[in-house]
Structures are given as C-alpha cells and as structure tokens.
Simulated scan of single mutants.
Amino acid sequence: MRQYFDDELADLDTSFKEMGLLVSETLDEAVQAFLDHDRVVAQEIIDRDKAINQREIAIEKKSFEMIALYQPVTTDLREIMTVLKAVSVLERIGDNARNIAISTIHVKGNKRVAEIEETIGNTGTVVAKMVSQVLDYYVNDDAVAAESISEVASGVSETTRHIRELAIEASKADPEQVTAATDYLVVAGYLKRTSDYVTDIAEWIIYKRTGKIVELNPGTSSFI
C-alpha cells in the first residue's frame, strides 16, 4: 500500500511541476506578446488558458482521491495539501498571463514609451523566472530558498511602483500617451500580483517542509 501511495504522490508532484512550467512559459510569452503588439500570440495564450484550468481540476481531483483512499497523516498529508493550495495559485498566475494577453488584444496603435516597455519586459522575465524557481524549491523541498524568494518579490514591487511613476510622468508630458500609460499600469499590476502569488506558493512549501504557517508577503506594497 505504501509503495502505491509513493508512486501516486510522485505522479502528483510531476503533474504539479508540469503545470507550473506551462504557466511560467505562458507568462513569459504573454509579456513578450504585449511588447511585440502580437495579437496572434496573445490569442493563442487566451485559448491556452482552458488547458491550464483543466490541469488544475485534474490535480485537485487526484489530490482528493488520494486523501480519501490512503487517509494520509502528518508529512504525507501536508504534501498533498501543499499541492492543493499551490495549484490554485498557479491557476491564478495563468489567469494573469491570460489577462496580459487580453490587454495586448485591446491595444490599438497607441503611442508607446520605449523606457517603460523595456522595464516591463525585464520585470516579466524576472517574474516568470520566479515561478520556475519556486517550482524547483518545491521539488527539492527547500524551505530556506523558498523563504528567500520574498526578497525578489520585494524587488518586483519596487520596479512596478517605478513603472507607475513613469506612466504618470508620460501621461503628463504627452496626452497622446495616456492610453498606453494605462495599459502599462494594468500589465505592471498583473506582474506585481503574480510575484505576490509566487510568495504564496513559497509559504506553502515552508508549511510542507516544517509544518509552520509563515507570512512572506505582509501586504506592505502599495501598488495594485
């Protein structure tokens, strides 16, 4: 019975990791599509959201079945609960990628600001890497590294706040940039929330490893 449980738990971990990698790649592509004004790729990302949602449902179903069948306790139960909690967060990150793609669809020849777009692109790369890293921390059961990701999230918070300031300045300097500035604020907000979601996953990794509930994102950021 124990071997069956271990095998199914390994399958669950693999499914979680695969979903996380898909979400990370989708987020990276969504930011690039926004910067490239690529509506074709943006639409592909929007369509892909259904597949991400289906993966979440399948993982949740598998988790509940394992709890019912094996009635795990202590460490085993914490591991399954971590997947249950973290997979819903991954789905929300996927929603953010979809929403960035929707913003790309809505952009229609607005006057752009190169400095802001470069900053958004760099931030998107950082946030997508955060998603990939936190998955590695999960697989390696690395609570120490998971806790350190809050520092990266803090950096993202500062950068998105700077994007907000640049967008406001651009709007004041040139009324024709107001629409583009609004798009930048929206996309930066999605990236900021995504970095917050990654810290949520990190918190569950720490719970999985130690059984302790910690707060890595106390809500001190003021931007969106």
Rank of each mutant, 00 (worst) to 15 (best):
66 M>K: 08
203 E>Q: 14
181 A>K: 02
147 E>D: 04
33 A>G: 13
125 T>L: 06
89 V>C: 02
217 N>D: 14
144 V>A: 15
198 V>A: 05
46 I>M: 13
43 Q>V: 07
187 V>N: 01
85 K>W: 05
53 N>V: 04
30 A>E: 13
127 V>K: 05
18 E>Y: 10
139 V>A: 14
122 N>G: 03
140 N>H: 15
182 T>W: 07
109 G>W: 02
48 R>C: 08
85 K>G: 15
185 L>G: 03
62 K>Y: 10
39 R>L: 00
58 A>T: 02
125 T>K: 15
11 D>P: 02
78 R>F: 03
58 A>W: 01
74 T>N: 09
201 I>Q: 03
35 L>P: 03
8 E>Y: 07
208 K>P: 01
219 G>F: 05
77 L>Y: 04
55 R>F: 11
7 D>Q: 13
42 A>E: 12
192 K>H: 10
98 R>Y: 05
86 A>M: 12
16 F>P: 07
102 I>T: 09
21 L>T: 15
147 E>A: 14
118 E>V: 12
7 D>F: 09
224 I>G: 15
26 T>L: 04
17 K>Q: 14
188 A>F: 03
133 Q>G: 07
201 I>E: 03
175 P>E: 09
136 D>I: 12
59 I>K: 01
164 R>D: 09
178 V>R: 06
103 S>Y: 07
21 L>A: 10
162 H>P: 00
139 V>R: 14
217 N>Q: 10
127 V>Y: 05
31 V>T: 06
1 M>C: 04
67 I>M: 14
191 L>R: 01
85 K>P: 10
194 T>I: 09
102 I>N: 04
83 V>C: 08
111 K>V: 11
200 D>R: 10
12 L>F: 05
82 T>R: 02
59 I>F: 04
161 R>H: 08
54 Q>T: 08
154 S>F: 07
70 Y>K: 05
22 L>W: 07
7 D>K: 13
91 E>W: 02
92 R>T: 10
131 V>A: 06
116 I>K: 01
24 S>M: 02
204 W>Q: 14
132 S>C: 01
79 E>V: 08
224 I>K: 14
55 R>G: 09
196 D>V: 01
108 K>N: 12
88 S>N: 13
18 E>P: 02
4 Y>T: 08
114 A>W: 00
176 E>C: 04
115 E>W: 06
213 I>D: 05
5 F>Y: 13
32 Q>R: 15
74 T>I: 06
168 I>T: 06
75 T>Y: 02
158 E>D: 12
36 D>W: 11
9 L>P: 03
122 N>I: 07
144 V>R: 11
195 S>C: 05
219 G>D: 05
155 G>P: 03
126 V>K: 11
102 I>L: 13
13 D>L: 12
44 E>G: 00
199 T>E: 00
114 A>T: 10
70 Y>F: 15
109 G>N: 10
211 G>F: 06
167 A>G: 09
80 I>K: 04
105 I>V: 14
86 A>H: 07
210 T>N: 08
123 T>A: 10
222 S>Y: 12
64 F>N: 07
78 R>H: 06
80 I>E: 04
175 P>D: 01
186 V>Q: 08
90 L>K: 07
136 D>K: 10
172 K>T: 12
122 N>D: 13
